[in-house]
Amino acid sequence: MSSAEPTPPTPRFETLTVPKASDVLAAEVRERILSGEFGEGTALPPERQLVEQTGLSRATVREALRILEVERLVEIRPGRGGGAFVHRPGHESLAHTVRLVIRGQRIRLEALHETREAIEPACAALAARRRTERDLAELDAAHAELVGAGEDLPRFLRANIQWHNAVARAGDNELLIGFLGALSESIHASTDLARFLDLRIRQLTAHAHARITEAIRAGDAEAAHRRMSRHVCGFARAAAEVDGRELVDLPDSGD
């Protein structure tokens, strides 16, 4: 007598997650923006037409547009002539995201300086290879502003940011421009001006900027990298001597 056939196992299925309609619409528009199909400033169809074309509710369409607005992929303009307009991400979008990470994760001031020491010398080397006459003029203008700041500490630090951002722009790398912009702004915002009173630091900074600019102007990438490395490392040490904080609460940049 033959044994009975074994009972096959009952099929099982994993729990399925169905995406929200607003997420699906946002994903389609996002892809068409990032692929270049929708260029900068392109006006999306009015809300009423989007409802008709997609078959979705007005609330769903509005939610999708809001998602894209938060991601800075569209700009919502009110009033007559308003609507949703495409905004393709640039280095300013990267800078905004980096600032959010720095604030949200409460990044240590030491970590900000370490990151700057790791990447800004490379920016200086790129600047030496790629700088234009316009870039050199921006570097010279920022340096003149820094030297002319005198005892005006906020003016000095703003000019310092302008110079470092000008170096990044001269390197002509969109990722580094955005990243360095956020980093410079964060270091500036976290610097305790009441303690940053050392004239020696300001004098050394001005001298270092002049030397780095000289290397960039000469197209000497190796010297630009070396001098920038020495500068940012020295600046970090000098700043630590007058500001012993480890964790810094950055203010809201408003963007």
Rank of each mutant, 00 (worst) to 15 (best):
R103S: 03
L109G: 00
A111M: 08
L112F: 15
T115D: 08
E117H: 11
E117F: 11
I119F: 08
P121A: 02
A124L: 03
A125Q: 04
L126M: 08
A127G: 13
R129L: 11
R129G: 05
R131I: 08
T132S: 13
R134F: 10
D135A: 08
L136H: 05
L146Y: 10
G148R: 07
A149V: 10
D152T: 12
L153Q: 15
F156L: 05
N160Q: 09
Q162Y: 11
A166M: 08
N173W: 01
L176R: 03
G178M: 11
G178Y: 12
F179K: 08
S184K: 06
E185Q: 15
E185T: 07
A189N: 10
S190I: 01
T191M: 01
T191L: 02
D192I: 01
D192A: 04
L193S: 09
A194E: 02
A194F: 05
R200A: 06
R200Y: 04
R202D: 02
Q203K: 09
L204N: 14
T213F: 00
E214A: 04
E222G: 03
E222Y: 12
A224G: 14
R226W: 02
R226H: 11
R227E: 14
C233T: 05
G234W: 06
A238E: 07
A239Q: 12
A239D: 05
